[in-house]
Design a binder for these strands. Sequence first.
DNA 1: GCTCTTTTACCTGAAATCAGGTAAAAAAAA
DNA 2: TTTTTTTTACCTGATTTCAGGTAAAAGAGC
Lengths: 209, 209
Amino acid sequence: MRYRTVIVDDHPIVISGIAGLLTDLENIEIVEKFESGVALLDYIEDNKVDLILMDIFLPIINGVDLCKTIKQKHPKIVIIGMSSQSERSLVMQFIQNGGNGYILKNASFDEFKDCIYKAIDGEIVFSEEVKTIISQPLSEDLERIPGLSRRERDIALLLSQGKSTQEIADNLFLSFLTVQTHRRNILQKYKMKNVAELIAFLLKNNMLN
Amino acid sequence: MRYRTVIVDDHPIVISGIAGLLTDLENIEIVEKFESGVALLDYIEDNKVDLILMDIFLPIINGVDLCKTIKQKHPKIVIIGMSSQSERSLVMQFIQNGGNGYILKNASFDEFKDCIYKAIDGEIVFSEEVKTIISQPLSEDLERIPGLSRRERDIALLLSQGKSTQEIADNLFLSFLTVQTHRRNILQKYKMKNVAELIAFLLKNNMLN
DNA sequence: GCTCTTTTACCTGAAATCAGGTAAAAAAAA
DNA sequence: TTTTTTTTACCTGATTTCAGGTAAAAGAGC
C-alpha cells in the first residue's frame, strides 16, 4: 500500500526540501502540497489522504487548530507536526488535539524516516530534540520555582474550582481570615496580581493536582 | 546488557502479576519491588536502576510527583507509568514530568513487552488504549462545548494574564462597562462562579492560545 | 535546644468582582 | 432580506478580593 501524503508549509523552500527527502521513501506518495490550512481542508473533503506533514506556524489557521479540525472529521489520517523551534506546551497541545507525532525541522533524514514509518504504524512519535524538550525542561524550569506548601496547594486547588474564601474556609474547617492570609501569601510568593493569573501560572507549570 | 528493573505498586497482587509477565522477557531483570514511592526513593540512592514500572495511584506520594523527583536526580532511568483506568490530562502530566511511557494495566502481554522494549530504546510509548484516550476524547469532549467568540477570547486571555477589567478596557480600547459585560457573558456561558474557575476550565480544555 | 517554615488568626479600608437588569449598533448567518 | 449572534454600552448594589499591617502556636530541620 502506498500512503497518500500531503505537505503543508507556508515556506515553499521547506516544502520542496521535505518533498525531496520523502521521494526516497518506499510507499510514501506525495499527492499534494499546500501553503495554507484552508486549502488543505478543502482538499481532504474530496480526496483520500493517509498522511499529513504540517508546519505548526501557519497563516490564518494554526497547526494545532488545523489538526483538531481534520481529526474530528477524519480520525484515521495520520498527522505529524513540524516546526523550526518549539516549546513543550505547544507539542503537548498538538498531541492532545490528535496529532500523531512531532518533528523538529532540523531532524536528520533518518529521524524523519523513522518517525514517519512509526507514525503510520500507529505510534505517537517525537524526534530526538522534541523528546528532550518535553521532558528535560522541568529540571531547569521548575527547579527554581519555590513550591506550594501542602495547605497552600489545598487552597489553590479549591480556588481553581471557583470556591470563594468563605467556601474554602468552610471546606477546610479554617477561619475566613486564615484562608485570606494563605491567599495573599501565595499571590505574593509568585508575584501574581490576582487568582486568575495565579491559576493560569500554576496550571501551566503543573503545580496543581 | 540486562536492565535492572524495579516495580512499584501498592497492590501486591499486581506486583506479582507484572513480575510474572516480565520474567519471560530477555534482558529484563527484576531487582526489587516496592509498595510505596518513599521506599523506592531510598533504594535508588544506593542502587543502580535502569527501568521503573510504577503505578500512578500510590499512597503518600503520587506517581507524577515521584517520577518528577526521580528524573531530576536520575534522568537516565526509564520510567513507565501504569494505572487501571486513566484520563488524558493525567497521562500528559506524567509525560511532561519526564515519564517515558504510559500503559493501562489491561494491556496485553505483547503490548507490555513492546512498550518496555521501545521505551528502553529511547522512545516515548503508550499502550493502545492510552493512545485513544489522549487523542480521541476531543471529538466527544470538546465538540459539545460552545466556543468563545473572538472578543471573548481576547478578554479571557488578558484575564489569564492577571489584568483587571479596567486594564483590559484600556488594552482593547473598550469601555470598562463593555468588558464587564463580556466577563459576565463568558462566566454565564460556561456556568462558572468566577474568573479563577473559568481560567482553570479554559486551560484544561485548551481553549486559550 | 534553637531556628526557620508553616499554619493558624485578627483588623481595616480601598478596589474590584459579581449578579441583576436593559439596549442598540454591527456583523454574521440563514 | 430577515434573523441571530456578537459587540458595544450603561446603571445599581451586594459581595468579594486585594493590600497593608501584626502575631502566636505548631511542626520541621539543624
